[in-house]
Design a protein around this nucleic acid. Sequence first.
DNA 1: ACACAAATAGACAGACCTGTCTATTTATTT
DNA 2: AAATAAATAGACAGGTCTGTCTATTTGTGT
Lengths: 187, 187
Amino acid sequence: MKESEARNRILNVTTRLFYEQGYNSTGINQIIEEAGIARASLYHHFPSKRDLLTAYLEEMGQQFVNELTAYLAPLKNPQRKILGLFDYRIERQYHTSFGGCHVMKISAELEKTDASAFSLVAAQKEKQKQAIINQVAQLHAKENAVLPGELLTETLFLLLEGATISSTIQKNIQPLKQARKAAAKLI
Amino acid sequence: MKESEARNRILNVTTRLFYEQGYNSTGINQIIEEAGIARASLYHHFPSKRDLLTAYLEEMGQQFVNELTAYLAPLKNPQRKILGLFDYRIERQYHTSFGGCHVMKISAELEKTDASAFSLVAAQKEKQKQAIINQVAQLHAKENAVLPGELLTETLFLLLEGATISSTIQKNIQPLKQARKAAAKLI
DNA sequence: ACACAAATAGACAGACCTGTCTATTTATTT
DNA sequence: AAATAAATAGACAGGTCTGTCTATTTGTGT
């Protein structure tokens, strides 16, 4: 029922354009044209542009988690999986020509007073963080670890976030490689 | 000569609006109205909107460095100054109601192919990073430090960046506090 | 007093924006 | 076969956008 052909085309085009051009710079008209569907069809499935934003975030969130899970699956132990988090980001940066994290991009376009949008966005980030928590939980704490468990999780997450935005601004993967190196010393 | 009254008003209003609403969502008409100047005056000083962007980045960069320098000045030793970097960000987040870093916000609105804009943006970030390098250079390396000097600098920078974006998305200072805690253990 | 720069008001072009509406056609289901 | 849903084309309203242009007034330095 939700699998209609037109809806899929709309969602695919929207996802691509919102990520490449941003939310504000992407117009309904462009979506209609590139998706090759009628105006009324779009408004039938998505009554307002805001509904497209919600769908975009959910779609991208789903993709991200699926891809990450697949990427980490073959890695053998928690250490390697944690380093895999950084490698995955590196691969993604190459694949998107340094487009950066979609959640960060969208959040920068939102008015800071738009609480409902920010709660959507924050929920997406929370999911990503959960992937780290799951791995750190399986680490055998080092004898004389510099950072205790919970702080280690947070630090790894923040390193990942900082390296991602930094890599996006600099348009090279150096920050992610450095973050990976630091992570290797901390786990 | 560049100190004309009208120009200052334009720049002040532009700076506020670009930061609060973003670049794409701020119109020339709104700037004119809020600055209380004539349309032709704006185009006299800034021939295109793009010129406003350049001026905005330079203005904000100047402000950021000045404020940070003033904030760190009374702190006594390199350790405290490094932790001061985090405290300064916390204060800024409160002061801007969690508006976040202006460089990150703008970079998220740029097309990733806009090389000239990205080089402006990257230069601003480089300046901020330099502030950390300066402090770390004065640290006496710990005997058995987990992270060697250069990697320590990069790690502190990435922690700061990650905690800033994370704090902006979550709308609370917890990430910055955690990053500060991690930094304290690393230096 | 003269010249030049800076600022003003406001109309205008040409394009784009979101969302609504009418009226018709195609599918699917019962 | 009848009814319901999904899709189509395209006009339309009301607004906003950037940038240009004319024509006039204010200010400043020489």
